[in-house]
Computed example of a mutant assay.
Amino acid sequence: MSKLTVIILAKNEEQNIVDCINSAKFADDILVIDDFSKDRTVTLAQELGARVIQHGLDGSWEQQKNFAIKESQGEWIFFLDADERISEELAKSMQDAINNPEKGSYLVQRENKFHHNEATHGVLRPDWVLRLCPRDGAMVLGNVHEKLTSPYDESNLKGILYHYTYDNWDQYFRKFNQYTSLLAIQYQERNKKVSFVKDIIFRPLWAFIKMYILQGGFKDGKMGYILSVNHYFYTMTKYVKLYYLYKSGGKL
């Protein structure tokens, strides 16, 4: 069995996949789970020595990632998005962790980056995410904003995981629409209640205040304001979709 499998979920990521894989070259096994890309993602990944398995997402990140865990050959796994890059310091920390006889699960600090803008507060402030853990006992839960879970004690790794968020606004709003729809469906499956006044009028306002003022989005200037307003509409939209799923099956 390999020591470490880096797992990359991808679909039509030819612009990202090369830099992504190159940042993970220290791993024993690089596994790309491809959702039937129509561009050169598969070819480029294979040329770089990655192992590629095609498997349909079918609207569930949870099942796709759990499938990837089963296909991993490493004793350890690390989830890496195609638009993320492992820094040299993080790579070293990961290698130190997996060579430690005492097993644990590890969070990494993710820093969001744009190509031409900067936003380091509010919605896109740096966060800590669980990404590295032993394969044994690992599981992913949740269809949207899914989380990796592990039975081992958690600690933090040194080094940054760089996340190149969005190339353009079209991509941003495609994900906006996709995620709000999936969240509404997930909430309905859990029988989550929705109130027009509380969740569609007041909750989005609180979401804006929290991101723009309390989390410092105002410090990021124009981009901070735009992202905070979009977070208002993101919050409202997922509850509007949920409200009408209950009311009329989502039809207007």
Rank of each mutant, 00 (worst) to 15 (best):
L90H: 03
P126R: 05
E89Y: 08
K92M: 08
H121G: 05
D81F: 08
N117Y: 13
R110H: 03
A119V: 15
L90T: 02
D96F: 07
D81A: 11
V144P: 00
D127A: 07
P101V: 00
K113E: 13
N117G: 00
V140A: 12
V108K: 01
A97V: 01
G159N: 01
I86G: 01
G137A: 08
I160N: 03
R85A: 03
S150K: 04
R131E: 06
N99T: 02
S150C: 07
L124I: 06
G104A: 15
D81G: 10
Q95E: 09
F114S: 14
D127G: 07
L80I: 09
K158D: 13
M139S: 10
K103R: 13
K92P: 00
L107A: 08
D96V: 01
V108Q: 07
T120I: 14
L132D: 06
D127I: 13
V140R: 00
A91T: 01
T149G: 06
G122A: 10
R131F: 03
V123K: 06
E102C: 00
E146N: 15
N143I: 01
N117W: 13
L132E: 05
P101A: 03
M94A: 04
D96N: 13
D96Y: 05
L141F: 14
Q95Y: 01
W128L: 14
Q109W: 07
E154R: 11
V144G: 01
E102D: 11
T120D: 12
P126C: 10
V144D: 03
G159Q: 00
R135W: 11
E89A: 12
N99C: 08
L80M: 12
V129C: 07
L130M: 15
S93R: 07
F114V: 05
K113N: 06
L141C: 09
P134D: 07
P101I: 01
H121R: 08
H121M: 07
K103C: 02
E146K: 02
A138R: 00
E102R: 03
L132K: 03
E154M: 08
D81S: 14
R110W: 06
W128N: 12
P151N: 13
W128C: 07
M94K: 05
D96K: 10
S87E: 01
A97P: 11
G122L: 09
E102M: 00
Y106V: 01
E84Y: 08
N112R: 02
L124W: 15
A138C: 06
M139D: 10
S105H: 11
L107K: 12
I160R: 02
N100R: 02
P151F: 09
D83H: 12
Q95S: 05
P151E: 14
L80C: 12
C133D: 09
G122W: 10
V140P: 13
K147V: 06
D83M: 11
V140Y: 15
P134R: 09
R85F: 02
N156I: 02
D136C: 03
K113S: 02
S150G: 07
H116A: 12
S155G: 05
A119G: 04
Q109K: 14
G137M: 09
E89P: 00
V108C: 09
D153H: 14
L80H: 10
G104S: 14
I160L: 04
